[in-house]
Design a protein around this nucleic acid. Structure first.
Lengths: 175, 175
DNA sequence: CACAAAGCGGATAAAATTGTCCGTTATTGA
DNA sequence: TCAATAACGGACAATTTTATCCGCTTTGTG
């Protein structure tokens, strides 16, 4: 549905949104325990910086931080930051281009789906994603191991604890 | 939205559905006037043959034909023939797998979109696509040139006329 | 100031997708 | 039976996407 690049953007930003917002998060820290390739995510984050969805600071104590509240960053903005403006504008049928004078029936048929998708992307924010991720990770900790001993690598926790947190268990497959 | 492979399948089958169904259509004829690369479409069509959406016959007079009425072939069947069973089952957010015990909020949020898409693919048939393509091509012929002299490379027309029909004009860009 | 930590960005590599080539096999018609 | 025709399918090539490498710049700290 989305390119890996976009998925890394979504996941990476979610991780970012899950941490305390008062200080920058290093990329190493952010990627830790994830399956995401650090270097590639770095590239993706450059695009997000340029799109001004996040801020970056170099040197010691540097890292990334959301440029504004997670609730003010829509998924559409994220997708556009990666894929460029106005994605999903193409006709589903592809190869048979449509235009305003002669939109093909499929064009119209598909319209509601496209609109639903765009509405979803415009209305869902990074805050929603973060809630989701937090719940998911909490559940995994509960499900798998770590009987609450040093068990909160997420938010409202000193960063040293985060840095030394054990790797997360491999996530179960399936829908 | 869809891979080029799927798009060629959709377009190729539409072209097929646009021709008289009483005899096989050669790949050369089918691709003629299109931007589609013959050899690649050939590969795609092999998958469609194996998925039993079309029949093929070799040798002189051979070619491809729909295995059943265009109205009985859904877009979902076409997509599945190319991409394998149950596409669109993954969570949009990707990388954060969901499961039945712990579907993430996004999973649920996205549900209506996914369902709308699946419904579209299940309810729209190749016949719909063919209608669309026919209308589109007729409009283009009208719009661009060929003042009705030997002007119907589509359906209900002797195949010799089809074979010698002039290339279609480059389609105008835009949505 | 010097050093280490961090992001930045160009070059390169690996993998997946897309596209091409060409010999083989099956079928038809002369 | 032979030759022409058209799908079949394996190998290869090009392109795009995904991933890695490494030197550079910036910045905070001792």
């Amino acid at each position: 549905m989305f390119s890996t690049e976009v998925q890394y953007a979504l996941r990476g930003l979610s991780e970012l949104a899950c941490r305390p917002s008062d200080k920058a998060v290093r990329l190493d820290e952010l990627v830790h325990g994830t399956q995401m390739p650090r270097e590639f995510v770095a590239k993706v984050f450059q695009k997000l910086v340029k799109a001004m969805l996040i801020h970056s600071s170099r040197g010691r104590g540097g890292g990334f931080a959301l440029a504004r509240d997670a609730g003010a960053i829509t998924l559409m903005q994220i997708v556009e930051a990666i894929d460029g403006p106005r994605p999903f504008d193409r006709c589903v049928v592809g190869l048979v281009e449509c235009n305003d004078l002669m939109p093909c029936p499929q064009h119209d048929l598909y319209k509601p789906i496209r609109q639903a998708l765009q509405q979803y992307l415009n209305q869902t924010t990074l805050a929603d994603l973060a809630v989701s991720l937090r719940a998911k990770l909490a559940w995994q900790r509960l499900r798998f191991q770590s009987p609450l001993a040093n068990s909160a690598p997420i938010a409202d926790v000193p960063s040293d604890a985060v840095a030394s947190a054990p790797d997360r268990p491999t996530e179960p497959a399936g829908n």
